[in-house]
């Protein structure tokens, strides 16, 4: 009996140790992800500073002489700076596809909309299926009036 209890305790220790190891691994991965995110955002800040003070006027005629709206573009530049660099380069080299401006991806939008229409009921169903309702012995009641 004692041995069995000891065995159980040993198993519990092992599981606990495993959980701790998984948690340490998760923390390390999260820390790495956050560091990568910080590096990405700092690079974006550098691109934003360069593009909004110098590049924007070179590639966007309607932005020349217009400065008040530029601070509003800072978050976008920081978040999508690889796209900003790509478009900046394309416009500097005169590789802008004029006709494509009239063709937003409407077909893709319909397909993604249909995928959403299928996915949403599945997610809702999953949420309801796994829900664990507590015991329903008696509805809770407030025994005394709030002071």
């Amino acid at each position: 009996m004692i041995g069995a209890e000891a065995g159980q305790d040993g198993g519990a220790d092992l599981r606990c140790g495993r959980r701790m190891a998984v948690r340490r691994g998760g923390t390390a991965m999260t820390a790495a992800l956050i560091l990568a995110g910080q590096v990405y955002l700092w690079a974006g800040a550098a691109v934003a500073a360069l593009f909004l003070t110098w590049g924007i006027g070179r590639v966007e005629p309607h932005a020349r002489g217009s400065y008040l709206f530029r601070p509003l573009l800072v978050p976008g530049c920081v978040l999508i700076w690889p796209l900003v660099l790509w478009r900046w380069r394309a416009l500097e080299q005169g590789r802008d596809a004029g006709c494509a401006r009239h063709r937003p991806p409407r077909v893709a939008q319909v397909r993604i909309g249909v995928a959403l229409a299928v996915l949403v009921p599945l997610i809702l169903g999953l949420g309801l299926v796994i829900r664990q309702d507590g015991p329903r012995e008696r509805p809770p009641a407030l025994l005394e009036a709030a002071q």
């Binding site: 509003l72 573009l73 796209l83 478009r87 494509a100 993604i112």
Partner: peptide
Amino acid sequence: ATSHDFWLSFLTAPVWKALHLMIYPAYA
């Protein structure tokens, strides 16, 4: 962050729209 008119013009409609289609996975 990319909702200003500038972004639609700068990125072009196909790229801007493709970026904004991310709202669907976000809603899911």
